[in-house]
């Protein structure tokens, strides 16, 4: 995976560069892990290569998404959601609120459902991420995907990837033992079209099917 290069950097932006240099100076002294490779630290400290400094706004990140290893370089402020949608061309994970209030961005990280909009990409170092694009096995849909089609668990389809990721986790966690429990444990995924009763049916169906998820 290619590293994104610097963009339109304005070398005259003194305020920015000052902060960056200060960071470089003390970051190399930290007992904490400094994430910059040493030759870049040197290059930037001596201001020989302003362009190199851009790399300090980005940090290396290695993670696995749907079984594919990615070695990336990202700005720390990039969320996992935006990384997936805008940089890894995986727009199946949806942005609904960007504030942890709707569940549309639900993905699995190391097998557990989390909100990718509230997760910094850099904090996923070494982790395994599964998105909606990673569920089907070729043409063979995941049982939860099948069940959503069968029970019409969606209309516009926008919350659907999050619902499906959440639904799978709901069963795995052991929270699908009754319709009432499913409703409670699926309440972090808002569906504005109002497909809830059908979503509950789909999850109950998969649970009953006893598939290994």
């Amino acid at each position: 995976m290619a590293t994104k290069g610097p963009h339109n950097e304005d070398p005259n932006d003194k305020a920015l560069n000052k902060g960056r240099r200060e960071f470089l100076k003390h970051s190399s002294l930290l007992t904490a892990l400094a994430v910059a490779p040493p030759h870049l630290v040197k290059a930037a400290e001596s201001a020989l290569d302003e362009k190199a400094a851009v790399y300090f706004e980005q940090v290396p990140l290695s993670l696995e998404v749907n079984g594919v290893h990615h070695k990336l370089s990202v700005e720390p402020r990039v969320t996992l959601l935006d990384l997936l949608r805008e940089q890894l061309a995986l727009p199946g994970t949806k942005k609904g609120c960007d504030h942890g209030q709707c569940g549309a961005c639900t993905v699995h990280v190391n097998g557990r459902r989390v909100l990718s909009c509230m997760s910094l990409a850099v904090m996923q170092e070494g982790k395994k991420v599964t998105t909606i694009e990673g569920l089907a096995n070729g043409d063979q849909l995941h049982p939860m995907q099948e069940a959503f089609i069968k029970h019409d668990g969606f209309q516009c389809g926008y919350c659907t990837p999050g619902q499906i990721m959440s639904g799978i986790a709901c069963i795995r966690e052991g929270h699908a033992n009754s319709d009432e429990e499913v409703r409670e444990y699926m309440s972090g995924n808002i569906c504005r079209c109002g497909a809830y009763p059908n979503i509950v049916k789909a999850i109950a169906d998969v649970k009953k099917g006893g598939h290994k998820l």
Partner: peptide, 14 residues
Amino acid sequence: DRVDGRAKVTGTAT
């Protein structure tokens, strides 16, 4: 079944 169902459950509906 919804004819765009497959696209919607696989995240490929754009």
